[in-house]
Write a protein that binds this DNA or RNA. Sequence first.
DNA 1: AAGTCGGGGTC
DNA 2: GACCCAGACTT
Length: 353
Amino acid sequence: MNLAETLLNWYDENHRELPWRQDQEPYKIWVSEVMLQQTRVEAVKPYYERWMKRFPTLHDLAQASAEEVLQYWQGLGYYSRARNLHQGVREVAERYGGQIPNDREKIITLSGVGEYTAGAILSIAYNKPEPAVDGNVLRVFSRLYCLENDITKPAARKQVTELVSGVMPDDRPGDFNQAVMDLGSAICTPKNPSCTQCPLDQYCLAYKQGRQRELPIRKRSAPPRVIQVAAAIVQAESRYLLCKRPAKGLLANMWEFPSIEIENKNDGPMELEGLLCRLGQQAFVEPVPVLELTHTFSHRQWQIVFYSCKQVRRQEIADSNHVKWLSPETWSSLSFAGPHRKMAAELEAQWHG
DNA sequence: AAGTCGGGGTC
DNA sequence: GACCCAGACTT
């Protein structure tokens, strides 16, 4: 029995039951794979279920608005995934009559589909012997073959892709790829791998050398840059002033309370008055801090202070595409940007209570 | 090749 | 606190 057969036997006994493993429908596999990018299985489950109720077919998603798609992704993070998936699905509807292509050259051109996702869809949905090298596979194979390459570099991915191609079976390629991922999740974990329970222990060079804890090699990323942010809670009657973030960049297209990045924490009130002035506010606003919190992204950290600003006349600031006065009862159809979601939740609770 | 892009579970 | 997760895209 070879490595693949051994692993598939283990998979038959130990694989996880997951919502996207009910069938091999390419659209469902695609959605699940995009949601799972840099995101844990347990976090994805509820999003996937909700998504499939609202967008059960590729056609349903293609016809939906960008706003609604973003709303269903709210909280999952990496929002360009939702935008690219939406775009990719529309490309399939237009170019391929709704049929997701089943070869690598075509599928890789779709928006949001990279090397990994292409391999995952091809192997799982179409039974093609294509590698799908994700973080789990990089870790498992780094240990199996004692690879010293930095797995954050493309060269390591390339090397592992070659090794996977060499051991991948012609039958059940999708199960094989998923088996490596399940093994990486349950046995060959980043820390304290359960080597004594591993079905591949006899094939594992790192285990043989007692070096499994040293592998894989991964360059650690730079700490996030700290940025001070001041945000304004401006209320007029039952409505609050909200702004839509730009279409590109961090938290693209999501709603937030008017905010500004500042150099010095003490400058918050002054900077907010300037910001509201530029939006059309004429009166003095007297900002008073009401909530302070820290929100850490991958590459930056917001230290944000929310200031309650004195009530103004709503007429002074006009609604537009990116600036709106909205009552909390309408907020459920919006996507709030990161820490602004928490602030919005508090105001909604106040409003109901 | 390096930087951008989220949020949360786990140790 | 420090990782690290079924990565893709831009520069």
